[in-house]
Amino acid sequence: MTNVAISGINAVDNPGPGVGVIKSIKKKDKNTKIIGLAYDAMEPGVYMDWLTDKVFIMPYPSEGETPFINRLLYIKESCGLDAIIPTLDAELPLFIANGEKLGSFGICTFLPTKEQFRLRAKDRLSDLAQSIGLKVPESRTVTSYEELTKAINEMKFPVMIKGVFYKAYKAFNYQEATSYFNKIVSEWGYPVIVQKVVAGEEMNVVGVGDGEGGDFGMVGIKKLWITSLGKIWTGVTVKHEEMLRTAKNFVKEFNWKGAFELECIVSDDGIYLIEINPRFPAWIYFATGVGINLPERLLSAALGKEPERASNYEPGKLYIRFTDDFVTDMEIFQKIVTRGER
């Protein structure tokens, strides 16, 4: 039996990808033992005992590598741990830096390299896009109202006002632009990115690179309905050949290893690259639902097996998210708070 740890079990209004990854792995083999990694006792995945066999509270990656790695070694010792699928941006640098070390303890991962991870940083996205034949929307980095106004005057409304790491808002006038600028600065600091809005269809591709220029499958989707936080609520599979070809080029050009999500805008004058996420998106179960079980394939690759590579999904399949609830005992909460595990 395989024991796999999966993070991002915060199935809230801004959901982590963990629950979708777990559902995918359980779909392939319900006997796989799932160890949920949580950062808060209130993460819903802690209580979903039909999906997580064990759950451990983790120290934040910002507390340093040693407590984090020690916690993983404790988990391995107490219940066995063969592989980890991290799904949260903030954890990835730590897992990538310690992949070999974890491997030496028999804990497998399948992640991009440090260089690959750096490639998709927002300040390098333009170079990356060009090398695979994609465009990027015109953008300026600003640090003052004066620069913000100048950038807007050059680009005209509407514009996107974005933080370097998180958050993006569409502004239609100076008042909105200034307010979003202040909001991002107060939360994330300087600089702020002003980006031209490109008209077209917003589409995404999720896939897994094999690290040697090939892939273990990919799926293209379009978001049909998003929440006020910009998260997908309904979607549809698409087969946009040029976008899928570009995704294959990306994997080939950079020998991408591990999960990725390309966020694009398909416009009349070409495909624009908006962002590359070096992990599974929260809607990953969509790919599994159309027959391309990417989490299971990634897990197989991590464990040194050769996974399936087919990407033969049907366009026109719908993804529907919905809210659900359940009632449980205080016992789980008590355990997770007092012992840090259940």
Partner: peptide, 17 residues
């Protein structure tokens, strides 16, 4: 385009219906 007899059209490339 996928077109059904009731007049529903789906574009598999853009996802629009």
């Amino acid at each position: 385009l996928a077109i059904n007899s009731e007049g529903f059209i789906f574009d598999p490339e853009t996802g629009n219906s």
